[in-house]
Structures are given as structure tokens and as C-alpha cells.
Design a protein around this nucleic acid. Structure first.
Lengths: 124, 124
DNA sequence: TTTTCATATCATGATATTGTGATATGTTAA
DNA sequence: TTAACATATCACAATATCATGATATGAAAA
């Protein structure tokens, strides 16, 4: 039994979880699907770790082999390799084998953009 | 005792964690400080949860009260309120009290940009 | 007052993520 | 072959995060 009378346009009451039905209906139809939110959150989760961010930061300057990343960040090889695996699995870095070495680079410009807008945000 | 001879410019060996010293020295000087990576990863961590992304997605369409968010996302009030607290603490949403209600909105355009670039990335 | 409602905080068990030691793989040099 | 090296994978203890029930706060209505 909902109110049909519109005698007050600025009625801001939510009346026990019934909320503003018109507003709710409008926005509900304009957001992505469940599965896309799941995928997107997995993607952003990758940026939520300082080690991975450092790797992304380095690779936004130039392509590097695993060994150089370890050295530049003063991290052990297992740690870097593990994080690179996660970055690869999430399509954030790619690599090219060169003999014994693996040269890593960022997958595309989206990655660099997100990293830089984030950095801008926290520095402002 | 490092090699000084440059007889081979394309020498790609890393010689046991000594890596490519010139490259490493160059990039090391161009990345942010430890504390900034910590802060930035905390910031991005917020985007790494589907519930919070949904809230961000809704608020990128229009400002909403807690009740509307619960209803639009079919989530219980505690969950939404908890995530809003995290979003507030991380400067991702702000709110305005209007009587009993709290009307939430995104803090600034960076948030919307990051959300949208991420969505673009996973949809391509 | 007291009641009702919108929102916030606390506490917790379930689950996920972290860095790292041990070890494996695969490539090149000897 | 064997040895040395660059990188990858496995396993796990320590830690962090999640959703949610119980409860608190604070504003407006009665």
C-alpha cells in the first residue's frame, strides 16, 4: 500500500526500507551486471597491493626483466615472480621471452591511466 | 667486481642478481616513495570489492541516500553502511545530512574516471 | 517525554591474500 | 652430458577483509 499522493515533492522520508521508488527504479536499470562488477573488482584488487603498484610504476617507465625489478625494488625473487604471475593472470602485464630472460611490460594504456589518476588523487 | 667492457651492447645477462645496473639506477630514481605506494594501494583496495563498486557505480549516476542504495542493490543496511564508512574514510564518497537522511555522493571526478577506465578495460 | 525510523558502530566467524622458503623448470655455457 | 643462472610454482603461517547479527545513536513524529 504505497502513497500515491504527491502533495509534497520534497518528501525525503524513506518509510522503512521502501525508499524512493522512482529514483531506485531509475538507477537500477543503469548499472552493469553482477558478473561485470565481479570481474571489475578482481581487476582493481590487483592495484590494491604496494608491491604490485611498484612493479606497475616501474613498468610505466620502461620494460624490465624480473631480475631488474627485484633489484630496483629490493625484493626477493619469489615475491616479484609471484606478483608478476598475478599481474599476468589479470591481464595487467605481458612478457616476452629473450633467452633466459623474461622482459615484462604493461598490457595497455588503461593500466598506466588508472595508476596515474590514482596517484594524482592521493597527492592532491 | 663488475664488467667494464662494453664489447657487446646487447648483453642481456643478469649475472646472478647483479642485473642491469644502469637501467636499474635510472628507474629507481623515478618512482614514488614507499609511503605513497602504501597510500595508493589503500586507495585502490577500495575499488577491489564488488559491493563498493556497485555503490560507486550508483553514485556516478546520481546522489542517493543509504536507504535507496540498499534497495537498488538488494543489500542489507549494515553491509551498505559499513562499506559507506570505508568509502568515506578513504575519501571516495562524501555525504550531507538532510534530516534523518544522509545523502551520499562521489568526492570528485577522479573516482568516476578510475571506475570508468577500469570498466572500459574489462569490457574490451 | 516515548516511539519510530535512518543510519552507524561493534564483534565475529568464514574466507582470501600476503610474503617467503623450498623446490622445479627451462635455457645457455662449458 | 653437467653446471650455472633466470624465472616459475608450491605450500603455508601470518594477516587482512568480508558480510552480517546485535546494538547504539540521533533526529523527527506522536
Amino acid at each position: 500500500m504505497k502513497k500515491n499522493n504527491l502533495e509534497n515533492e520534497n518528501d525525503d522520508m524513506c518509510e522503512v526500507f521502501k525508499s524512493h521508488e522512482d529514483v531506485v527504479d531509475r538507477v537500477k536499470g543503469r548499472i552493469p551486471e553482477e558478473s561485470e562488477f565481479a570481474e571489475l573488482s578482481e581487476f582493481f584488487k590487483i592495484f590494491g597491493n604496494p608491491t604490485r603498484l611498484k612493479i606497475i610504476s616501474l613498468l610505466s617507465i620502461e620494460d624490465l626483466c624480473v631480475c631488474d625489478i627485484c633489484d630496483a625494488l629490493d625484493l626477493n625473487q619469489t615475491t616479484v615472480s609471484n606478483q608478476l604471475r598475478i599481474l599476468r593472470a589479470n591481464n595487467i602485464v605481458k612478457y616476452q621471452k629473450e633467452g633466459k630472460m623474461a622482459r615484462y611490460s604493461l598490457t595497455d594504456l588503461h593500466i598506466e591511466m588508472i595508476y596515474k589518476v590514482g596517484l594524482e588523487h592521493i597527492l592532491e
